[in-house]
Amino acid sequence: MISGDSLGAQIARFGLVGIAATAVHATVAFSLTFTTSLNQLLINTIAFLVAFCFSGAGHTLYTFRVQENHAGAVAKWFVISVAGLCIGNAIIFAGMNWAGLSRAIAQGAAIFGTVVFSFFGSRLWAFRQGQEQGGVE
């Protein structure tokens, strides 16, 4: 068990929750892919939403240990998650179309950029405690 609220401990907990949420996303996506005839974009959206619920709970209760206003923190996490999805897609698009990167390199850059954005957005806004947060409440 990772203890403490140091930056390093939060990064480690963020990573654990993120890995687990990715596994949830993949499980839902592949289960629906192989058992239904739903559109793949709809399947991915459903998997994203299920994984979001998992990660929202994990980051609220475990990563950042939010003590109050869980609904406000999760609403902010949703904004960060959707923004991260958009940022990742933008990195992939720009990397492949403007910088000439391969799909794999662009995907790797998108994952890295999204994780960094998501962690600091979470730490500094969505799950920030002890100070007036402003924004979505």
Results as ranks from 00 to 15, higher is better:
L61S: 02
A94V: 15
S37V: 10
A83E: 08
R103D: 03
S3M: 14
T63M: 00
A75G: 10
A23S: 07
T22G: 12
I43M: 13
V50C: 07
A75I: 06
N69Y: 06
G58V: 04
A75H: 10
F52T: 05
G58K: 00
A71K: 06
S102T: 13
R65H: 07
S6Q: 03
A99E: 01
L49W: 11
A73D: 12
A57P: 06
T33Y: 15
F93P: 04
V17C: 03
A71P: 04
L32A: 03
G84C: 03
A104N: 05
L61H: 00
G100S: 07
V74E: 09
E68C: 08
I43A: 07
I19A: 00
H25E: 14
F93A: 11
A47T: 14
Q67E: 08
D5H: 07
G18K: 09
I87H: 11
A83C: 09
I80S: 03
A57R: 05
V24I: 14
G95Q: 05
L42V: 08
G15L: 14
A94H: 02
T36G: 12
N69C: 06
N97I: 06
V28G: 04
N44C: 00
T33D: 09
H70E: 15
I46C: 01
I43N: 13
W98M: 07
F48T: 04
S6F: 02
A51M: 12
A71V: 14
R103A: 00
H59E: 01
L61I: 09
V82H: 12
T60Q: 00
W77S: 01
A73H: 15
A47E: 08
A57S: 06
L7T: 15
F52W: 10
F48P: 02
K76H: 06
C53D: 09
A20P: 04
I92Y: 02
F34G: 08
T60N: 00
A90I: 15
S37R: 05
T63P: 03
V82F: 14
G15A: 10
S3R: 04
G84N: 12
V79P: 05
A47G: 14
D5N: 12
A99M: 11
Q10F: 10
G58W: 09
F30L: 11
A29Y: 15
Q10S: 06
A57G: 02
K76M: 12
S3G: 04
A90G: 13
N44Y: 00
Y62K: 00
F30W: 08
G18W: 11
G4D: 13
E68V: 11
F54E: 09
S3Q: 10
V82S: 02
T27H: 01
H59V: 01
A73L: 15
E68W: 11
F14R: 01
L49K: 03
A29G: 11
I2S: 01
F14C: 05
N69P: 06
L41Y: 07
V50L: 09
I87N: 13
L49V: 11
L42W: 13
I91Y: 12
N69I: 06
A12R: 05
S3E: 10
N39L: 06
C53E: 13
L85T: 12
I43E: 11
I92H: 00
I92L: 04
H25S: 09
A9H: 11
L7S: 13
S55I: 04
A12L: 13
G84S: 15
I91V: 14
T36E: 03
D5I: 07
W77V: 10
L85S: 09
G95V: 08
F64R: 01
T45L: 13
A26C: 13
K76E: 06
R13E: 06
